[in-house]
Write a protein that binds this DNA or RNA. Structure first.
Lengths: 261, 261
DNA sequence: CGTACCTTTGATAGAGTTCAAGAACGGTGG
DNA sequence: CCACCGTTCTTGAACTCTATCAAAGGTACG
C-alpha cells in the first residue's frame, strides 16, 4: 500500500508518512506476547492508526493491542484469508504482493514501521494480497471491531483515503514514468519515509531484493541493477549491494521531472 | 477510481460493479435542481453508496441528495479544490485524471452510472484529481456529513476498500501486462460494467478517446489504435471508431492470460 | 566453508514510442 | 442541406528503451 512518492517536482504524488514530524526513537523489540498500549508506544508520532486527532486523547488509553512477531520470510496473511483485523507495523519491513493465476505476481507496496496494512480486506471480508516480512518484524493487531468507535472513524477514513492517493501515485509512476524516473521516485520515497522516522534520509539499507524493487516498479531486476550502476556513475548516489547513500538529493529529485540525463 | 478489471484468468483483479445483479433501467434525465431520494432512484441496484445492507432500509428514506448536472467537457471538481462531498454518478460518464507539474498527466479512472467518486479528498480535505464529464452527466451530491451515520460507516469502508483493491488491479495491469493484455483487460472491464447496468456487454460505445484510453493504460494513443486494428483483424472484436462489438468474449479474456497471439 | 541466492554486466532482440501525414468523423454555420 | 473546420483516428517508418538470455562474481546464511 505504500508507494513510491515523488516529492518535489511531482505535485500530485502525496506522501502519507512525511506529514508526521520527526520521531527519532526506534522501536525496541520487547517480549513477544505482551499487549501494547498506544499511549506509551514509541511510534506514537508516526503510527497512523494511533496518530489520532488531539481530541481523542482519552481514547488512546483504551487502545491496547496484541503484538505479533513475524520472522523474515514469513507471511503475515495470505490472499484469500479472512479479514478481521488491520495491522500496524511496529518494527521491521513488509511487502504486499498480488499473484495472478498465470503465475505473474507484483509487489504492490512496501511497509515500514508506523504504517498500517490490511485494508484490502475491508471490502470483501478476505484479503487480496499476500503480506510477507522482509526482515524480522512485529505488528500490532487491530481488530476491526475496535475501529468502529465513532471517534476513530474519521481517522480511518483518512488513512484509507491517503492510501488511495498513494496508489494513484504508483499508477502515475507505472503509467507515465520511464525506468530511471521510477527508480528515482522510489528512492526519494524511501528516503522521505526513513527521514520521517528519525533515520537518515541520505543513507539507508534496502530491505528488498532487486527483483522485488523491479516487480514494484514494473521493471526487470536487471534494469534496476543497471540503473543503480548508472546513477552511481553519474554521482547521484552510491550503491554497494543493499546500502544506498544519496549524494545529491536535489539532483535525484530533479531526475524524476525530466527523463534521463 | 474505476479500473480495468480482468475478470476471468486474473484472479486477484476484482470488480466492484459486477457484484450487483442486473438493473436494466437507465437513468432518465429529469429536471435539474430537484432533490433525489435514494429509495426511489432507479439506480438503486447498482449505486454503491445506496447499495446498503438490507438492515438499513429505514435509513434509505432519509437519504435525499441534491443533483448536479455536468455537461460534456465540464469539470466536476479540480485537483486542489476543497473536499466536502462525495458524488454518485446518476447518469453519464466521467474520467479522473492526475496532473504532474511537468505537464504529464494520467487518467486514473473512468466512472459510469452507479459509481462513487471523490474519495481521494477524504484524507487531506482537498481533492487530488480532476474529474471531468466525458458526456452530459448528472451526479448525486453526498455531503460527507451524511456519511457519518454509524449505519453507513461500514458500507463506506467497503466502498473504499473495494476501490483500493481495484487500484491494485490497475497496478497489476500497468506493472505486469503487455499492451494487448492491457487493452483486453480494459475491454473486459467495460463489458462487465455495462452488462451489470443492463446494457449490452457485447456491444457498446466508448465515451473516451484513444488518447484517454492510452493514458489510462500507460500506452500511446497510436498503440491503442493499432491494437484495436489488430484485434479486429484477429476476429476478437469489431471496431468502428467508438463503437465496439466483442465477438468472442472467451478469447478476449484468454488473451489477458498469456500475452500476444 | 560451501551452497544457494542475489547482483552485476554484456549482447541481442522485441515491444512500444515517436514523428509524420493522410483519412474519417462530428459539429457549426451559412 | 452542404461545406468547412477542428478534432480524432489510422497507418507507416525509424528509433529507443527495456526485456530477455546468458554467464560470471559476490554475499550471506546455514
Amino acid at each position: 500500500m505504500i508507494a513510491a512518492q515523488a516529492a518535489s517536482p511531482l505535485k500530485p504524488i502525496h506522501f502519507a508518512a512525511s506529514r508526521a514530524s520527526v520521531a527519532p526513537r526506534r522501536a525496541t523489540s520487547e517480549s513477544a506476547s505482551l499487549p501494547t498500549r498506544c499511549n506509551t508506544c514509541n511510534l506514537r508520532e508516526v503510527c497512523l492508526p494511533c496518530g489520532l486527532p488531539v481530541a481523542s486523547e482519552g481514547l488512546l488509553d483504551d487502545l491496547v493491542y496484541t503484538r505479533k512477531r513475524v520472522k523474515r520470510g514469513e507471511t503475515l496473511y495470505h490472499a484469500g484469508s479472512s479479514f478481521d483485523s488491520l495491522y500496524a507495523v511496529r518494527s521491521g519491513f513488509f511487502k504486499s504482493a498480488t499473484l495472478l493465476e498465470d503465475g505473474r505476481d507484483q509487489v504492490t507496496a512496501f511497509h515500514m514501521a508506523g504504517e498500517l496494512l490490511g485494508m484490502d480486506g475491508l471490502g470483501t471480508d478476505h484479503h487480496t494480497n499476500d503480506v510477507v516480512a522482509l526482515e524480522d518484524s512485529e505488528v500490532c493487531v487491530i481488530p476491526y471491531a475496535h475501529l468502529e468507535a465513532p471517534a476513530l472513524q474519521k481517522q480511518l477514513h483518512k488513512v484509507m483515503s491517503r492510501e488511495l492517493v498513494r496508489d494513484h501515485g504508483v499508477m502515475m509512476l507505472l503509467g507515465t514514468m520511464r525506468a530511471e524516473e521510477r527508480l528515482a521516485a522510489f528512492l526519494v520515497s524511501l528516503s522521505q519515509r526513513f527521514g520521517a522516522r528519525g533515520y537518515s534520509a541520505a543513507e539507508f539499507h534496502l530491505r528488498m531484493t532487486r527483483d522485488e524493487i523491479g516487480s514494484f516498479l514494473g521493471l526487470s531486476l536487471e534494469t534496476v541493477s543497471r540503473l543503480f550502476s548508472r546513477m552511481q556513475d553519474e554521482g547521484f548516489i552510491s550503491v554497494q549491494q543493499k546500502h544506498i547513500r544519496i549524494l545529491d538529493i536535489p539532483r535525484l529529485k530533479a531526475s524524476i521531472g525530466r527523463a534521463a540525463s
